[in-house]
Write a protein that binds this DNA or RNA. Structure first.
Lengths: 199, 199
DNA sequence: GCCATTCTTTGCATGCAGTGCAAGTTTGCA
DNA sequence: TGCAAACTTGCACTGCATGCAAAGAATGGC
């Protein structure tokens, strides 16, 4: 089914376009790279580019369209006795471990994003979908209602903040720090209610 | 100084372009409106549009370029005995009160943003600048260091989450709820460390 | 192994976004 | 009143993004 030649080729092309976009932008900056450049390096026609990504920005970010469902799936898969925060934290640990494994693409992505604020916007818009899906799952676990109670949307939103902050600090340490530690540290502060740090 | 004819005309043109963009997009959707349409309704040439906003999205959002400094200024202006969280909360109350006063533009802005996820991205990218400036001010108040300690970036980031969530709920209630109450409620949950809500 | 079906790639044409430049117009100030 | 600075506008150009239709490649039944 999912492993036919056709499907594998599509995945390969998608990845080739993403990597081409990412590396070219890392070299020359966002405005120094055209769709034609990206398509050429990925060995497809410029027109084909748009069969895979709706814009240059999306290709650079290379967001997985299945990510929101993946995130929510990990969350709902956590044992029922865990609180929503505990479950999200556990999911974050898993995600952080996965990201930290990749010593090349993730650092490159984060570096490029940091250098181009325009991409942050596109990225957060992508995360927005994840937040919405996750908020529904959180509501389910906590017996609250999305759009009526604060809790689900707020936790979904804060969760993204925590991950974003951790990723940014990971970048700031030149990827020498442990990403899981950074995520944990941020969660400690948040779950303590953001107390003023000791001076 | 700031009240010369030239300056007032510029502000008026900027506002006219913003309102034109906002209303047209509310009517016809983001793709149903061209720069030419916006310029025409604001009685300027299409080329002049780009003297005021770098893109269509920016015109729709109409972000104040001085907002980051304004926010940080309010924050540093708070009495020194307040903790960083207390000070941010106070600033939020003030901002919420100001937004709630405007019964037309802010609701329209939020409605349009909600209908066009692409704008959320641009919006958050704009907030990013505010977050960075605010993080520096937070670091100052708490004796921490941006980029080294978690606290300043995390609080600056969470603060934006709180406001965003409150605004979204305000929209969800069709702007009937009190925005300041919604902001306060979100802060209560966050400062309590996101405890699981009672079932 | 062959063929009809289905999906993918590609080229072409088109409209709009966004920017640099230079000329024309308005405003501020002496 | 007249000069300098700031603002507006038209023109030209590059690049993004999309629809459409024809050509090419993979799939499954026979």
């Amino acid at each position: 089914m999912t492993s036919g030649l056709r499907e594998r080729k599509k995945q390969a092309t998608r990845l080739a376009l993403h990597e081409a976009a990412l590396r070219l932008v890392a070299e020359r900056g966002l405005d120094g790279v055209s769709i034609d450049d990206i398509a050429e390096r990925a060995h497809v026609s410029p027109r084909t580019f748009f069969n895979y990504f709706p814009s240059k920005d999306d290709a650079v970010l290379g967001l997985d369209p299945g990510a929101p469902q993946h995130l929510a799936g990990l969350f709902t898969g956590r044992p029922a006795e865990e609180s929503a925060v505990e479950a999200v934290r556990a999911v974050h640990r898993k995600m952080a471990a996965e990201m930290a494994e990749d010593r090349e693409l993730w650092p490159l992505r984060l570096t490029v994003i940091d250098a181009h604020p325009a991409l942050i916007g596109r990225l957060v818009a992508g995360f927005g979908e994840s937040e919405r899906v996750l908020a529904v799952a959180i509501a389910e676990r906590t017996g609250t209602r999305v759009g009526i109670d604060v809790y689900p949307s707020l936790l979904a939103s804060v969760q993204a903040c925590v991950m974003r902050t951790a990723l940014h600090r990971w970048l700031a340490t030149d990827f020498t720090a442990s990403l899981t530690d950074l995520v944990d540290e941020a969660w400690d502060v948040v779950t303590a209610g953001l107390p003023a740090p000791p001076r």
